[in-house]
Nucleic acid binder design. Structure first.
Length: 203
DNA sequence: CACTGGATCGACT
DNA sequence: GTCGATCCAGTGG
């Protein structure tokens, strides 16, 4: 597994969203290494996308990192209680990002279990194992990703993404979740996931 | 300053 | 299927 370099992120969020599937997120936190395979993403295309925080050039303190260099983390709080982890795409001044919606837990399951359910992995029910990282808020809780990670450079050593194995999988393309307000954009097929993967949030 | 609503989740019917 | 939790960012005065 090799850390992805800057150039990997220098493409539209629509293309990046698909290419991120099957890649591995690595987070070093409190002397621990947590790893998860990306199994579900959504593209937010910025200027022309009514569902995007940066729609129509909107530029506020929160969304500023999306206007910065590609390959950084955009982490924001939603509904007062959950964090969402995004990968900044495109290039400087083009505010696009990919929301990572679900991971398959790979390494550090014990810590993820404690973070999510305050109990050891061996005590989890089957449904709780699936629920460790099967949603954008859940995966941030499991990994301990907070807004302190907003703006983090994903080509450095704290939080980064690695190339996957050569495995083959089918990509399902469908509509994005939770953006009913976005008029015509709510019907764009800009959500992607690995077919038949158990950790997808809403198959 | 006060207000509004949200790229969610979990508990409940 | 519905709904409440919980709080910040954005907006407008």
């Amino acid at each position: 597994m090799k850390k992805l370099e800057r150039g990997f992120y220098r493409k539209t969020s629509l293309v990046l969203a698909k290419e991120l599937l099957g890649k591995y997120i690595v987070f070093h936190n409190n002397n621990e290494k947590l790893v998860g395979k990306i199994v579900e993403t959504e593209a937010y295309m910025g200027f022309s996308d009514k569902a995007a925080h940066s729609y129509n050039g909107r530029r506020t303190p929160r969304v500023e990192v999306m206007y910065g260099e590609e390959g950084h983390a955009y982490v924001y709080m939603i509904y007062g209680m959950y964090n969402c982890f995004n990968v900044v795409a495109a290039e400087k001044d083009i505010a696009q990002a990919v929301l990572v919606r679900a991971l398959e837990p790979i390494e550090g399951l014990e810590t993820m279990s404690l973070n999510r359910f305050q109990k050891p992995f061996e005590q989890l029910k089957k449904s709780q194992i699936i629920g460790l990282t099967s949603g954008p808020g859940k995966l941030c809780d499991a990994f301990g990703i907070t807004r302190e990670m907003n703006g983090e450079d994903l080509t450095q050593d704290k939080l980064y993404i690695c190339s996957g194995t050569e495995e083959k999988f089918h990509i399902v393309e469908t509509t994005r979740v939770g953006i009913d307000y976005a008029e015509e954009a709510k019907d764009f097929p800009w959500r992607f996931y690995i077919k038949d993967n158990k950790f997808v949030s809403k198959p």
